[in-house]
């Protein structure tokens, strides 16, 4: 099962108060495609990037300086290449956990649309994870726990419970 699906794209659009600029469709190959009047954009990361960057208003949720924009692109790439097929046992989650050990948010020092995209992408994995597993990737859990409290982000997603106190570690 792939995690980077059309839901992530539509949820992200809602989060940014944007209408998708065209029709989003899935090709039989599993590829996402965005069709506008004049052109087509293929692929999860490219579709999201075209929506976020070209349509992104002056919202503080969209990074504005070049370094942060690069970080945003980097995270879209990580979503599609690493997180896409992850489950709670996979090394992808461990890798993600390590990336989040030293930072609180994906881009810069505040919540941005990058956090939203990863939230929607990874949600199914964390929703199914056991408490034991969530404790094992505590940095990812900490990040998720903070991000999910952004009211606009949740859009119908249940709040996932995390333990504040390590229960299993020795």
């Amino acid at each position: 099962m792939v995690l980077c699906d059309a839901n992530v794209i539509t949820n992200t659009c809602k989060f940014l108060n944007l209408n998708a600029p065209g029709d989003i469709a899935f090709l039989p190959s599993g590829e996402v495609i965005l069709k506008t009047k004049s052109k087509e954009v293929k692929g999860f990361a490219s579709v999201l990037e075209s929506i976020i960057i070209s349509q992104g208003n002056a919202s503080h949720l969209v990074p504005s300086n070049p370094e942060e924009l690069a970080q945003l692109r980097q995270w879209l790439e990580i979503c599609i290449t690493t997180v896409n097929f992850a489950d709670s046992q996979s090394t992808a989650i461990k890798e993600l956990n390590e990336r989040l050990a030293k930072v609180n948010f994906l881009v810069g020092n505040r919540i941005s649309v990058a956090d939203a995209v990863l939230y929607y992408t990874i949600y199914p994995v964390l929703a199914r994870a056991t408490m034991h597993e969530k404790e094992q990737f505590c940095h990812l859990s900490r990040w998720f726990s903070t991000v999910q409290h952004l009211p606009k982000l949740k859009a119908g997603h249940e709040t996932i419970a995390f333990s504040r106190n390590p229960l299993y570690s020795n």
Binding site: N104, R142, H149, R164
Partner: peptide, 11 residues
């Protein structure tokens, strides 16, 4: 702070 982003709550 291992399990928390901020000292109190999530903000």
């Amino acid at each position: 702070l291992l399990t928390r982003t901020y000292l109190v709550g999530e903000r």
